[in-house]
Design a binder for these strands. Structure first.
Lengths: 121, 121
DNA sequence: CCGTTAGTTCCGAAGTTCCGAACTATGGGT
DNA sequence: ACCCATAGTTCGGAACTTCGGAACTAACGG
């Protein structure tokens, strides 16, 4: 098993961050890692919304987030702990993550409201 | 030729914006449209940096930006004028575009200084 | 040393992107 | 009215990416 690769913060590219967070599942995973005190085992995120994510896809999502420089992953025995790199990324690209996370947060609200109120569609 | 489709601002999704701007060429095109007084003919963006973009790819880039809700395109005779929808998008997702554009702007500087000669992705 | 749990790798199917070539639409010149 | 030039779009195939099931590896507990 290869050691987990993490880019140095100065090698982190905006397009990689946008690409990583352009997937709603990954954005949700990243948001969850931040909320949950910046630590989370991969398997704690077995589903996003009502959708179950297969292990292999999950593994890949974490890899994309890691290689984009958004999270730091450490093996602890049999499991992997993921920390958000928010502080570093914020220092390098101020306002970027806040803007993205807020955008998703303010989008989910209206969407859920609309979907729930229009039961007969 | 089909009329150009523009999503209503409330139908604009964060993932579409991130996906559109996750491509550095598109981000550069969008930044240019905003700088240039919010109006620009497609062909005025024939190249990004030192890279020439084929017409068909350009057409597709503008389509992606338009359908993400980032620009508004109007046919004026033989050409198409593109306006940024910054104000609308800013109202819906405050800070999102500023964060992204700043991230690219602050990335190009270091990149040009250090790695423009040997960057490979 | 075997079983279990957590994650990774492999690989084929499905989807997306890129770009050259052919096409359409508009306006100007004669 | 016609043709030509210019500006964009559409088509289609090759190259690339993503998804997910099955097989694999790694660490720990009995």
């Amino acid at each position: 098993m290869r050691p987990l690769f993490h880019p140095a913060i100065e090698d982190v590219r905006p397009e990689a961050i946008l690409h990583a967070l352009a997937d709603p599942s990954r954005a949700a995973i990243f948001a969850k890692i931040m909320q949950a005190g910046c630590v989370e085992a991969c398997s704690a995120v077995s589903a996003v919304g009502d959708r179950v994510i297969p292990k292999s896809s999950l593994s890949n999502h974490f890899k994309v987030l890691r290689e984009a420089g958004l999270i730091r992953s450490e093996r602890h025995g049999v499991e992997v702990r993921n920390h958000s790199r928010w502080i570093e990324v914020e220092a390098r690209f101020p306002g970027l993550l806040a803007g993205i996370i807020n955008a998703y947060a303010s989008d989910v609200g209206p969407d859920l409201r609309a979907a729930e109120t229009s039961t007969s569609r």
